[in-house]
Design a protein around this nucleic acid. Structure first.
Lengths: 347, 347
DNA sequence: CTGTTAGCGCATTCAG
DNA sequence: CTGAATGCGCTAACAG
């Protein structure tokens, strides 16, 4: 056993370097100038003792924990690989700014736990994911004066910092792409009304934009809203294909349902993209390439969104007190052609 | 502005309740007995002041942060919904034991960061996921005397606490199931050699068991090892089906590749399970039901694994000093019939 | 059953 | 350019 019982403290370093304790701190933070001579002695001492500052003590004394919570409620939707893109990007930016990310997977409704953790002084700021149109977490954070940023938007948009996809671009982009290829009758498979009333922002906005873009382009839309599962999507698609005037393309905003829809399309004797076109909204690259065929999609760069959010938060933590204007960021729509759309087939 | 600048401290509570500061602590921890009278006064005072103990100060004084890191390196494999099952289960158990989970997504090789975070005194223990046969994180944790538990195993099994799937059951169970249905020639699509040499434990163990079980059952195996992507799986399956004596069933241990394999099977004019049987190993329920058809599978209860690991860690944190025997747990194989296997077709 | 006293390791005044 | 003193909010002996 060669173990040192207790790890070295700042006092140990100071002693070994022959300086005072506070000088060690300043050598570390650079808050005031130090002679090269002294700095070197301190650095050497730190290296020799394998010194690492104690985070708790830093937090207590400096009223800054270096921890950021990522509120990542996992509801019906579950976890997708795309979600990790967000986590990863946020982690990168924040760690560069000296913060660690604390994942907080509790449900949105668990406000007591949220209140507790932010009151504990353990957390400097919060990134909120899966934001609802009226999000109960926000008042909690505001009342405890905890800095935060949203990935997503509430109905009251101007109220705080947020980043979000520019859903306004999705509908027009999707409709235009398909209209250009000659499609005049397009199926849409979205999410159920539940998601509407639960206030799931993207769903509402996107569908609205789709409708208005279709009107402008003179395209007929056949909208079905179903639960996010394969069977529901399959049934919805079968119904649409069995109609008198079946659609020649599908716009999906519901990945599990679209998997079922693909099955329905293929069973119907149609092949993609020769006979039928498929365009999926808001899907991650990973998920889009997990199906057969892979899905052409319109979405947002999640990493860009998350890293921007992280930057907003880091900035407002740096600027501490000042209540400058809220900052917003809209991520451009990204079109990725994976070959699942094509010109409308001749009869 | 009605904001209290600074949140209430233990001293404030003590003053308002008319007791000494330490009494407040003991009322909270129950470390020594207190008259009901006094306890009530303290509780009332805490409620009135909306008091929450400061986590940093608790950590500094009590040398216990209440934070557990979950080392969750995200490599080539990415993030799957099943992974969240682990996170969720671990979080539940640990929060009941008074801990928060800090997600640590850094790559396995990022040992400097790991060393730093555990030396900071910010973390009481670590749960390691994606454990390699020789995992470099382990020496780091041992040298810093940080309690930890593995989800997975190293080659040196007796060395520390771990939980893992009982892979020994998978091979026999898979072979027996298919053999009973009359299959005599079975394809296997596993992962590439890279994963072998990278020391990805499950891959190695499972394939070995598959081979020995097949020998015992008198079944012929046709093993292909491919990268985890759709195209590779499709090509591998096409090759096998084009052979002189094509297999009648597939055992997969590579989800993306199996998606491609399914496509190859269907294109070949075979339908599942009437003409061809499919059995997937080690896949999450979510992923198994994301394909068409859904996949019958053999795997492990991830939530059980993770919660057991969490319990191991919580226990060893409670029993602090004592170095009792390492604890191990093997999760039973779980067979889930999703209808993708059936009797071998008559010629 | 309760109060008093030291620290935990560091940031930050205040003095040179 | 550097040192000394104070306190962050709490736990854990030590005293009754």
């Amino acid at each position: 056993m060669s173990g040192q019982k207790r790890s070295a403290t700042r006092a140990d370093v100071a002693r070994l370097a022959g300086v005072s304790a506070s000088t060690v701190t300043y050598a570390l933070t650079g808050e005031r100038s130090i002679s090269d001579e002294t700095r070197k002695r301190i650095m050497d001492a730190m290296a020799e003792l394998d010194y690492t500052p104690n985070a708790m003590a830093q937090g207590l004394a400096g009223r800054r924990s270096g921890l950021i919570a990522l509120s990542f409620p996992v509801g019906e939707r579950g976890f997708e690989s795309s979600d990790f893109e967000y986590v990863q990007a946020a982690t990168d930016v924040l760690s560069r700014a000296g913060y660690q990310l604390l994942m907080w997977p509790n449900p949105i409704e668990d406000l007591d736990s949220l209140r507790r953790i932010v009151s504990q002084g353990l957390i400097d700021g919060v990134v909120l994911m899966e934001v609802r149109r009226e999000d109960p977490r926000i008042p909690v954070l505001q009342s405890t004066r905890t800095p935060f940023v949203l990935i997503g938007r509430t109905d009251n948009e101007s109220d705080c910092d947020w980043v979000d996809a520019d859903f306004g671009q999705w509908g027009p982009m999707a409709i235009e792409h398909l209209a250009e290829e000659g499609h005049e009758h397009i199926a849409v498979i979205g999410l159920t009304e539940d998601m509407f009333t639960a206030g799931y922002g993207p769903v509402v906005r996107t569908e609205q934009n789709l409708v208005s873009a279709a009107k402008k382009a003179g395209v007929t839309l056949d909208i079905e809203r179903v639960r996010p599962n394969i069977r529901a999507g399959k049934e919805a698609m079968e119904t649409m294909l069995a109609g008198a005037n079946p659609p020649t393309a599908l716009i999906g905003f519901n990945q599990p349902a679209v998997i079922g829809a693909i099955e329905a399309i293929v069973s119907h004797g149609l092949s993609i993209p020769a006979d039928f076109s498929l365009l999926q909204l808001g899907i991650s690259p990973e998920a889009a390439e997990t199906t057969f065929p892979a899905q052409t999609s319109i979405g947002v760069d999640g990493a860009l969104l998350a890293s921007t959010a992280a930057r907003f938060l880091a900035d407002s933590l740096a600027g501490a007190s000042t209540g400058s204007e809220p900052r917003h960021f809209l991520g451009d729509a990204v079109f990725t052609d994976r070959g699942s759309t094509g010109p409308v087939p001749r009869k």
